[in-house]
Design a protein around this nucleic acid. Structure first.
Lengths: 138, 138
DNA sequence: GTAGATGCAAAGTATTTGCGACAAG
DNA sequence: CTTGTCGCAAATACTTTGCATCTAC
């Protein structure tokens, strides 16, 4: 699995350095969607000499190489997550900030149709739902 | 129509000043989605003494008062548009930057269902489609 | 008259960049 | 070797804020 990231780098002609390997590792182990500051904190624990500039440069590079995706959720800093085969969108708990990933094929289809209807081919999209947890009992 | 904005302000207890009236006017006349800088340029042409700080303060105030909405499209600055009854989403031409507004009730419905399915009540959402114009001839 | 708005410049954030030292292929 | 990366600090971009002055109500 960590292999996969290194393979992706080789594939893209991205030079591998200790810092990049570390950032890749921390990101692939993250189950949340850390922002650069948080990521910097996590990698700093392992390599305290790493610079935040390197973290910024690396997430940008990884994004361009299709290893990470960037999210710009409402009113916050950019947050990153590892990009795997399966595309998904996000449901954000507005109270807790918790993020739930979901996929809805029907919505995906409709988006394509909307774009077509306006004479466009869909190349990308962003769907974010913001919700509050329902009171399940009574 | 400009009346409407002033009425909204009175309703919300928002004090009306020349600067606010001007910003409201420029925004309601805008058919695009200007960012703060662009808005500042437009109002400056009419009142060259206005400060950019006032523009920032006013768009934020108007947003909180439900007069404007803020959009944070990919990799850019925050952009604003007047908030009218009809909600809509955006289809962005990735080549030209042109923005097309659309509504799709089916998608809206499905979004609510997705939120429900995860135990949430949808309070807000963001849907942006990014597309390239199709070659219509031949 | 008074609470709140404005303009200005200074301060914050988030992110990028120039540069000399250093490391990967 | 040579090209590209790193760390550092300075620079940039966008937005917010403190303060004295001014204005709407």
């Amino acid at each position: 699995m960590t292999d996969t990231i290194e393979q992706k780098c080789l594939l893209k002609g991205v030079k591998l350095t200790d810092q990049r390997r570390l950032i890749a590792k921390v990101m692939s182990e993250a189950s949340d969607h850390p922002d650069v500051d948080e990521l910097y904190k996590r990698v700093s624990k392992i390599d305290p000499k790493i610079s935040i500039a390197t973290v910024y440069r690396t997430v940008k590079l990884f994004e361009e190489s299709g290893i990470l995706t960037k999210h710009e959720f409402k009113g916050g800093k950019a947050r990153y997550e590892e990009l795997n085969e399966g595309h998904h969108d996000h449901l954000i708990d507005v109270k807790s900030g918790e993020i739930i990933e979901f996929v809805d094929e029907e919505i995906e289809e409709l988006q394509k149709k909307v774009a077509e209807k306006h004479g466009y081919t869909l190349v990308d999209h962003k769907l974010e739902l913001y919700g509050v947890k329902k009171n399940l009992n009574k």
